[in-house]
Design a protein around this nucleic acid. Sequence first.
DNA 1: ACGTAATCTGGACGCCGATCAACAAATTGT
DNA 2: ACAATTTGTTGATCGGCGTCCAGATTACGT
Lengths: 202, 202
Amino acid sequence: MGRRSTHTPDQLRQLILDAAQSIIETNGLAGLSAREIARRISYSPGTIYNMFQNLDDVVLHIEARVLDALDERLTAALDGGPPEETVMRLAEAYLAFTNERPKLWNLLFEHYMPADAQSPAWYQQKLELLMSRVETAMAPLFPPGADLERQRSARVLWAGVHGITSLATANKLSNVTSEAASLLVRDLIHNYLAGIAVNARK
Amino acid sequence: MGRRSTHTPDQLRQLILDAAQSIIETNGLAGLSAREIARRISYSPGTIYNMFQNLDDVVLHIEARVLDALDERLTAALDGGPPEETVMRLAEAYLAFTNERPKLWNLLFEHYMPADAQSPAWYQQKLELLMSRVETAMAPLFPPGADLERQRSARVLWAGVHGITSLATANKLSNVTSEAASLLVRDLIHNYLAGIAVNARK
DNA sequence: ACGTAATCTGGACGCCGATCAACAAATTGT
DNA sequence: ACAATTTGTTGATCGGCGTCCAGATTACGT
């Protein structure tokens, strides 16, 4: 078969990404294969390699989508209220996302680039954007100029929430289901922020 | 070729596990294959399936080894000193382990059982044993009878330390290298415990 | 010595990622 | 209108994988 031109290159790219995302959402990264994508979009496997470097490249673009979706959720949870409440809302938003699309969220952590290829700069930027959401939520808790402390605390909380979510969804936090994870997350935030406050006072 | 009996079944099992572990330590889970194990121990791939159900089963046994090794490290860091210091030592021990054998540690989280097979009871028990190390270290911080709070706090800290380590080694915590991870972990523990103390006083 | 049980292999099946020559359709030039 | 050229698509192919199992071979009990 020769050229079809039923889809523009851009449409075809989106078609591939949509199919890949759907596969991952239902069967996880392990279920993804170039051949399966090809079956779903009624093209041959080779076509995928015309549009993307390789499967990792496809996955990377899906990751970009996930990071963007996550950021949408977080920004929607940002406005208003005292800092502790805002951070709580951020965390709840994160938890909600991982509960709604666990396989998709998990993709961010079970997939990594081959050792010879670093993740691109825009990927790191998207990560930093997410981090910055937490930082701005926490800003009122720090005196002006304490940028380092604010940055550090944001990272600690972000990673902490991630750790709880991660272990809970992987069923590796003895008997902590994903509902109970919310309790742990709230406990973490509440006590960590209290610690910050009391230690700053000294 | 027929029966060799140059190795007892038990020796052969250890041979397979040793080879598998060595592959994972150098090339990660992605580098593991039944055929590669077979090559290294000079048996055929089929032999592996005489000793183990499948590759997942092999990996599960490696995970058991890792959990045991981790527990050894943690117990060695347990004795003496005020609670906060003990928890710090536990966390440092965890961090040290992940830095020494990152691929092996990572195995615990990048591998999961197929959906139709839960992880066995002994696996969950090993996880709980690790958790209990943190619990005992924190015991002096809680009044007698506050078992629930102690359990919850131990899980929060455990998951928090894990989250920091996890994101740092995956290079997903904007510019936080594994050395800096230690700083974040100490910050987490220090402030969370301070928060616990001040909130309990009320 | 002989039969039985244990063990090991090699090949087979159906997957996979990735590549690329060959071909067909669309586009462009005349 | 037709030829030349560019572009898009395929299908075959390579080497790899997990898993299974009939058949061959060896060890062991008697």
